[in-house]
């Protein structure tokens, strides 16, 4: 059992069956179902005993053919930080391929905006209610392609070769 002080509060509030805690080298990861994501984050933000006022980043992971069995193919992780209490906790949700949507946290943390956009374009995950769901890092050549998925090759699918050269004469 984890000795992270926030975990008992989460179990008390949301019930043991929804909270799956994993510990590794000082990182506490709490796996929760997608349906209660916003509730959990709101609770962690507002509860004075938690005070997780900062979202460090948003990370996506593709677990296709991962050696260890996972709940679903995609994982989205929300590392939270409490500056007053100097404490970190990572909230993780799993998304299956048939339902790649997750609610946005932009209403709570403004700092989630670009990280969510990046995760969305790299994995094809839709963040519902995001104020600005444009692509962010890639250009339009990558329409419908998700580079960080394990099915996408490292060297791309010919995007980098799809330009017209200019010569000394034509310029």
């Amino acid at each position: 059992m984890s000795d992270h002080p926030t975990v008992p509060l989460l179990i008390e509030k949301f019930g043991q069956q929804h909270i799956d805690v994993r510990e590794f080298n000082g990182n506490t990861t709490v796996v929760i179902p997608k349906s209660i994501l916003v509730d959990v984050i709101t609770f962690l933000y507002n509860d004075p005993a938690c005070g997780y006022k900062q979202l460090t980043d948003v990370w996506g992971v593709d677990y296709l053919d991962y050696p260890e069995e996972q709940n679903a193919r995609f994982g989205v992780l929300y590392p939270l930080l409490s500056i007053d209490k100097n404490r970190r906790i990572i909230i993780k949700v799993f998304l299956s391929e048939d339902d790649l949507t997750v609610p946005t946290l932009n209403g709570i943390y403004k700092g989630s905006e670009w990280s969510e956009r990046e995760t969305a374009e790299m994995y094809g995950i839709t963040f519902e209610g995001h104020p600005d769901p444009r692509r962010i890092l890639l250009c339009d050549l990558f329409e419908g392609k998700y580079p960080l998925r394990k099915t996408y090759p490292l060297k791309g699918q010919g995007e980098r070769e799809s330009f017209t050269p200019i010569t000394t004469e034509s310029a």
């Binding site: 460090t56 980043d57 996506g60 992780l77 700092g111 960080l148």
Partner: peptide, 24 residues
């Protein structure tokens, strides 16, 4: 953020770059 699958390469290595966060 490193995810390892037990080999000598990372399964996922996400960079939390401060510039990216700041420019938001």
């Amino acid at each position: 953020f490193l995810v390892s699958d037990g080999t000598n390469k990372a399964w996922r290595a996400k960079t939390r770059g401060p510039s990216f966060i700041h420019l938001q």
